[in-house]
């Protein structure tokens, strides 16, 4: 738990430095090309940009902790509330995608392992390879063409239809983006579940369970599954990182108003405070998710202890 603190400090330092290295003077960018030199120097002083780097980092970190994330250059509004709102939208998408990935990937992996080398297993494993070889942004476009243009049954962009704010409408808008986002994760989870399951069903206690006459169904569901799912938990946790990254691309394809779209628009508009905030928010949430995964892992597997 405490080892999290150096990592989080490292993350903030890296985010800070990466944005510091960006070419161009933030004060100049904020004031525009026509600003006088005195005005730029004045703003640099006000922003503390004339201070040593370490002092700047310390100040910035204190502000971040206090919840004062600064104002966006492009949007002219407070960054933190804006980003939190956007992050909420992305969270819907990610939650949907994770649920889909688990509810398809885990059963597919189990079936594949139980019927190893069957036609179904082979087909599933080829599909898995195709699943994580597919560029996510391309898949999004294909789904848009199919469901939006050819069949015309699902909305292809945004979060809500104009003038509607009900849950049904939201869910309909989430279908294509989360389907796109989930494909790679589903593939990896299915593959991991399969190999974990294969390892478990070769162990002695499973042979014992079979030889005492338990039905195959009971052996798999009551004895094998529990142990097989432990490594899968880690993979699901790792997929959250994949989903957070893929989310950026999916949000661009579907013009989905999440944190990824905000980040990319910020980069293209050279709105560095906003980009910095967005990256920090996503990275810290990833660190926290990993912590939760570690805790769940230790809870599920009594052999694991964390100091």
């Amino acid at each position: 738990m405490l080892s999290l603190i150096p990592v989080l400090i490292g993350v903030t330092l890296l985010v800070f430095l990466v944005m510091q290295l960006a070419p161009g003077d933030p004060a100049q960018i904020m004031l525009g090309p026509k600003a006088t030199e005195t005005a730029v120097a004045q703003l640099r002083h006000e922003l503390g940009l004339d201070q040593p780097l370490l002092v700047q980092y310390g100040r910035w970190l204190i502000h971040i902790v206090q919840g004062n994330w600064g104002r966006s250059i492009q949007l002219k509004r407070e960054i933190l509330p804006f980003l939190l709102g956007r992050f909420g939208n992305s969270a819907y998408l990610m939650l949907f995608a994770t649920l889909l990935a688990c509810s398809v990937g885990v059963p597919a992996g189990i079936l594949s392992a139980v019927k190893q080398y069957s036609v179904g297993d082979r087909v599933a494993m080829v599909l898995v390879l195709i699943g994580f070889s597919t560029p996510i942004f391309w898949l999004g476009i294909i789904l848009q063409i199919l469901f939006g243009l050819v069949f015309g049954i699902l909305p292809v962009s945004g979060l809500q239809s104009p003038g509607r704010a009900d849950l049904g409408d939201l869910i309909v808008h989430l279908i294509l983006p989360s389907l796109t986002l989930t494909t790679g994760a589903t593939a990896i989870i299915a593959r991991m579940t399969r190999s974990s399951m294969l390892e478990v069903i070769r162990q002695d206690y499973i042979r014992t369970a079979r030889s005492k006459g338990l039905s195959e169904r009971s052996v798999i569901s009551r004895h094998a599954l529990k142990n097989a799912l432990i490594p899968v938990v880690t993979v699901v946790g790792m997929q959250v990182g994949y989903l957070l990254g893929g989310d950026v691309l999916v949000e661009i394809v579907f013009s989905y108003p999440g944190i990824g779209l905000a980040m990319v628009n910020g980069i293209l508009a050279r709105d560095f405070p906003l980009v910095q905030g967005a990256i920090l928010l996503v990275a810290s949430s990833y660190v926290l998710v990993n912590l939760v995964v570690d805790i769940v892992y230790a809870y599920l597997d009594p052999r694991i202890h964390y100091e």
């Binding site: 950026v248 980040m263 990275a283």
Partner: peptide, 12 residues
């Protein structure tokens, strides 16, 4: 600690 593609985006 960064999702891979996100770190790449930050660097670019």
């Amino acid at each position: 600690a960064f999702p891979a593609i996100l770190l790449a985006i930050a660097i670019v």
